[in-house]
């Protein structure tokens, strides 16, 4: 059919079930060790780093990328990719703002939220249908969506307000913001929601038939199809799930105002987190713990640099450090897995 099947055929070595876990487990140790070193280093320089308040804030910084990563991880495990999430996040936030804000349509919070989640799922469905039924490569579909949705967001945000006044959406009602800044049992609602999403995804991939199918599709679509699995349905599900989760990420926003610049570069951030977390871009491999650690490792970086108090020019190096971090992560991983997988060179 085409090269995807050949790629996955090659990778479908008999290592699937057990050795997969061994491999992935090692990657998690690797990230955990790097994380521990970084945290230990910063804490010796600045003791406030491990204060309860800071740990909470770091976790809150992780909420949006982590929620979306759960979906993108599944998409990548099936051997596809979704890079439209950045623009989708911007568009959904704008839509949520338009629907919920008292200066705009002023829908009740539940209706605005449901509509946002539904729109997210619909965007995901469109991606999924284009990938499976029309058979356009997912990177193309989501690249196209990335540009289109960004354009739509700008059009929506510069559309004249219903009340005829100038300015952005500045007053997201508290009933919506409760999911971002509210607290349940003393812990931020956004953390509860993220925890639910992560646990749900972990249960989904470990204990349900659907989860096993997702991995089967990614490791060998031909075999999966022959054994009677609907590859199409599985893939559509992962895209819809991702879209839905972008909707969830929209709702846990910490912000009261909506501007059109949201989510720029978010898609690459998420893919980076997922890949650093050990999910193989060729499909079939990846664990929830790895992704969680990957997100924390990437998101903690900016906080770390601020806590090191390196002065006013230090932030110019942020991006270089992030790039180097990814290179080191893949390098360690590759060197570590050399011994086990000889045929790995290529792709």
């Amino acid at each position: 059919m085409d090269a995807t099947s050949t790629i996955s055929m090659e990778l479908a070595t008999p290592t699937f079930s057990q050795r997969l876990w061994q491999l992935a487990a090692r990657r998690e140790y690797g990230i955990a060790i790097v994380l521990a070193i970084i945290i230990a280093g910063v804490t010796t320089k600045n003791h406030d780093f491990l204060s309860g308040e800071n740990v909470r804030d770091i976790l809150i910084h992780c909420t949006q990328p982590l929620i979306v990563s759960c979906g993108v991880m599944l998409v990548i495990v099936t051997g596809e990719i979704d890079i439209s999430v950045g623009s989708a996040l911007a568009l959904l936030t704008a839509v949520l703002g338009w629907l919920a804000s008292p200066t705009h349509y002023h829908w009740p919070a539940w209706a605005a939220i449901l509509a946002t989640l539904a729109l997210g799922a619909i965007l995901g469905l469109i991606n999924g249908l284009l990938v499976t039924l029309v058979r356009i490569p997912s990177i193309i579909v989501t690249l196209g969506m990335l540009t289109m949705l960004r354009g739509l967001t700008v059009i929506l945000m510069s559309h004249p307000r219903p009340d005829g006044r100038a300015g952005d959406i500045t007053d997201m009602p508290y009933s919506v913001r409760f999911f971002g800044i509210g607290k349940i049992l003393g812990i931020s609602t956004s953390l509860w929601i993220t925890a639910i999403v992560v646990v749900f995804t972990a249960l989904l991939i470990t204990f349900t038939p659907l989860g096993r199918r997702i991995y089967a599709v990614g490791s060998n679509p031909h075999a999966a199809r022959l054994s009677g699995l609907s590859v199409t349905r599985v893939k559509i599900f992962t895209f819809m799930f991702t879209g839905f989760l972008v909707g969830v990420a929209t709702i846990v926003t910490q912000l009261a105002t909506v501007t059109s610049g949201l989510g720029q570069g978010f898609e690459l951030l998420v893919v980076t987190c997922v890949v650093v977390g050990g999910v193989s871009i060729s499909g079939g491999v990846g664990t929830m713990i790895g992704v969680v650690l990957g997100v924390i490792l990437i998101q903690i970086q900016s906080t770390v640099l601020i806590f090191l108090k390196l002065g006013t020019n230090a932030a110019n190096w942020n991006q270089a450090i992030q790039g180097a971090l990814i290179l080191i992560a893949v390098l360690i991983d590759q060197v570590a897995s050399r011994g086990e997988k000889r045929i790995g060179g290529g792709h």
């Binding site: 804030d57 910084h61 949006q64 926003t253 910490q254 912000l255 105002t257 501007t259 610049g261 949201l262 989510g263 720029q264 570069g265 900016s302 906080t303 601020i306 806590f307 108090k309 002065g311 006013t312 020019n313 230090a314 932030a315 942020n318």
Partner: peptide
């Protein structure tokens, strides 16, 4: 300190918080 927000409100909020 000088920190970038990359034209993203969320990022601006996070770096200020830090």
């Amino acid at each position: 300190d000088i920190q970038p927000s990359n034209d993203d409100q969320t990022k601006a909020q996070q770096v200020t918080q830090d």
